[in-house]
Write a protein that binds this DNA or RNA. Structure first.
Lengths: 166, 166
DNA sequence: AGGAATGCGCAATAATATTTCAATCCCAAG
DNA sequence: CTTGGGATTGAAATATTATTGCGCATTCCT
């Protein structure tokens, strides 16, 4: 099991920064129960080691004029690695596609897309996605509403698991 | 169209903080071309107004021992609002479910789930999700690999759109 | 024009980040 | 035991940043 080089303080640092990425180091140190300098060193080490990929402001899409969110389920007519990679590269280049996950089962890829309005998305769908190489079939579903969108990981589950294995 | 009370500096602030949520205010101010005090005032205003929902560290799930990510497509046997809401409430209470979106079309909900391993997910699936009220059908797909996972919004698309409408 | 409102930047102060360094803890070898 | 090395800590000092107060410029609306 991974993450074993982390002690409880490290994990708590990750949990706190996941909950509030702009917390000051002084506040963070006080929460995890150590002084500021070692706390900062731990944060830097966690960043270096790749546990922390980055920090991002979470911005309200609708407030900014992105009214439409869509999940697109994509099937290709070839599962050769070269074709899969080529499709992934296309996805990375499309700004409306925010996430692209390769799946097992009948669906090859699921994409999470955003757009300012439906017609923008339709244009993207018909002119770009459906015309991409080896795309056999795309099923799209509009997001009606979002009940939960928690960035990050359930640290309580992780702690429970570590306690059990201890 | 929303977001019209924002000037180009505000939008650039959002874009910068989306890219690096821990940027210092001094750095941010210099990037957007104003001095620190008004820059900070703008950030606070954007937070107050709800454009910025929060800031989060982006943490590598696999490094922490969450080996499994799954998309679950859920259909209910009732689309009464009370039943939909009840299901959403269940999702919010399940830590393994990180996202829950209500969709149009044949699928009612799509869930993004994480788990330390497959058996943990299977237990959740059979003991929790499949036994939840009004759940008619669940199709799950394991994430094989993730080609793109960009938090946030494509500000370049937004700017292009605003330029066109100007 | 005139006056209010908005928003800027400078300067001063408060808070925080970061470096330095000596003391402590832990563990393994003698 | 005890002793030495490595790692980690926290106090103090310094550098950097955040925050407040205030006067000035610009805009906008009479």
């Amino acid at each position: 099991m991974a993450g074993h080089k982390l002690d409880p303080i490290d994990r708590q640092i990750l949990a706190e920064l996941q909950a509030d990425g702009r917390m000051t180091n002084v506040e963070l140190a006080s929460r995890v129960g150590i002084s500021a300098p070692p706390c900062l060193r731990r944060v830097r080490a966690l960043e270096e080691a790749g546990y922390i990929r980055g920090y991002h402001a979470d911005i309200d899409a609708r407030e900014l004029g992105f009214e439409v969110q869509v999940f697109a389920m994509v099937r290709l007519n070839s599962q050769a690695e070269a074709d899969l990679s080529a499709f992934e590269a296309r996805c990375r280049a499309w700004p409306l596609v925010r996430e692209c996950h390769m799946l097992n089962g009948e669906i090859d890829f699921i994409l999470k897309c955003v757009a300012p309005d439906l017609s923008t998305f339709q244009t993207f769908l018909t002119e770009e996605l459906l015309k991409a190489d080896h795309v056999a079939n795309v099923k799209t579903s509009l997001v009606i509403r979002c009940a939960k969108d928690e960035p990050g990981l359930p640290f309580d589950v992780l702690e429970a698991r570590l306690a059990r294995n201890a």
